[in-house]
Amino acid sequence: MHWSDTGIVLSARRHGETSLVVTLLTEGHGRHTGLARGGAGKLGRALYQPGNELSCTWSGRLAEHLGNWKVEARRLWTADLLDDPLRLSALSAACSLIDAALPEREPHPALFGATQILLQALTGDEAHWPEIYVRWEVGLLTELGFGLDLSQCAATGATTNLTHVSPKSGRAVSADAALPYGKKMFRLPAFLAGGRGGAPANDPQADIRDGLALTGFFLDSHIFHPHQRKPPPARQRFVERFGMTSTISGI
């Protein structure tokens, strides 16, 4: 059997001297692995860098086999990011998160589309790409079945002045309702509240750090910790580049 799709390279592991075992996030077939014969050669190495978008054809005798990739370049995003440490670390974090968190061979077309948007933002002149990255992580949580409910206050039902998120329920909490809980709640960045939140933080980076702390906590507690695994080090390195020092912010 064989099928053709569009895929984004997540990881490539050397197999023998000339081949690679490559994992792609495909639009219609989800996270899928296959053998790329000759992928470790001069031409293949440029293609199989994490983040590159390829036209791919998977073929195997049976669906459960590892199978083989035949690919062609669609958009080699990665080359544009190699000189920018922060954007490169964001790309590595996104690819390793999908690789570590997403079940194999389960289609997630929405996540594929969101990842394309993230790659466009990373490689473009988009100044708000860190916001897009945080939104992408929120979307990843949703795709995995652990979406955050940021539409109304979990305690009062209010739909305005949503400033915090409960670490227990993953639901938004209004400023008044969050007051008694001190530092036990995550701050909800204004850009995630969609007009229902408080004022944006004075430091534009503070909202990003709060957003990364929020998604990092739920990724760890819902996806990695239950399987006695740690989040990928690439994400940790990306967070460190933002100078993150605390995981839970004050009120």
């Binding site: 190495r45 860098q49 990665t78 000189d83 440490p85 490169l88 670390s89 790309l91 590595s92």
Partner: peptide, 15 residues
């Protein structure tokens, strides 16, 4: 090397 891993390492050392 001019790969994601190679350049990530270079940026880390540069830091």
């Amino acid at each position: 090397n001019v790969t994601v891993e190679g350049q990530t390492t270079a940026h880390y050392i540069s830091d």
